[in-house]
């Protein structure tokens, strides 16, 4: 039954059990997936509001564009590789197989960790070029946005690490299927956020 139909029915008219002998779940997916979706919407709102603030702030007269480090293209590649590897690991467990799951999953996380490290390198690079936090608003936003994104990646890596640890200590990859799926969804989200953010930063 569609959501719209559900919330227009007259509940006093139908008595008895509706919907068979199982509990009522609105969405036919694991609860963790529902919670993650809501979390990702909230996180998108955080990033969008920063984006809106960025554009509003840009209109003000003291805005000085900064030259984004070219290394960002390389870093983007790292994050894409990370996302792809997560997807690979998800596809494997999704097909009910276990071979190379750990390898792909572990590799995805490593690339993500490299991405965080490389992002921090760009900070050093900018500071060496005389662009500091508080030196101008574009720089403020650069450090703030990339930092926030890197923190989100780091948060994901914590969950990734726990899952890797479980698999290394002998847990069946199939038993980790949900964790692997959720990590993959989260990494795709981080990649999309990064691509949008990079486009915004690079074009202004």
């Amino acid at each position: 039954m569609s959501l719209f139909k559900q919330i227009t029915e007259k509940p006093w008219e139908r008595k008895g059990i509706i919907g068979g002998l199982k509990a009522e779940g609105t969405f036919d997916v694991p609860s963790e997936r529902v919670a993650l979706t809501f979390f990702l919407i909230a996180a998108s709102i955080v990033f969008s509001l920063f984006g809106v603030s960025y554009y509003i702030r840009m209109e003000l007269p003291d805005w000085l564009p900064i030259a984004e480090p070219t290394a960002l293209w390389f870093n983007t590649g790292l994050l894409i590789a990370s996302s792809v590897l997560f997807q690979v690991s998800r596809n494997i467990v999704g097909n009910g197989k276990s071979k190379n799951v750990l390898l792909a999953f572990f590799g995805g996380g490593v690339f993500a960790a490299l991405f965080v490290f490389a992002q921090l390198q760009t900070w050093d690079e900018l500071q060496a070029a005389g662009v500091y936090l508080s030196s101008n608003p574009a720089a403020d936003f650069y450090f703030l946005l990339t930092g926030l994104h890197a923190l989100h990646v780091a948060g994901g890596l914590y969950v990734w690490l726990k899952c890797v640890f479980r698999m290394v200590t002998g847990a069946e990859p199939q038993a980790q299927r949900l964790s692997i799926e959720l990590c993959t969804v989260y990494w795709h989200f981080l990649l999309i956020v990064w691509l949008v953010m990079f486009a915004v930063l690079a074009n202004t």
Partner: peptide
């Protein structure tokens, strides 16, 4: 959303 008991429609 997910934990309503059987019969508990929205």
């Amino acid at each position: 959303l997910q934990y309503r008991t059987r019969g508990m429609t929205l």
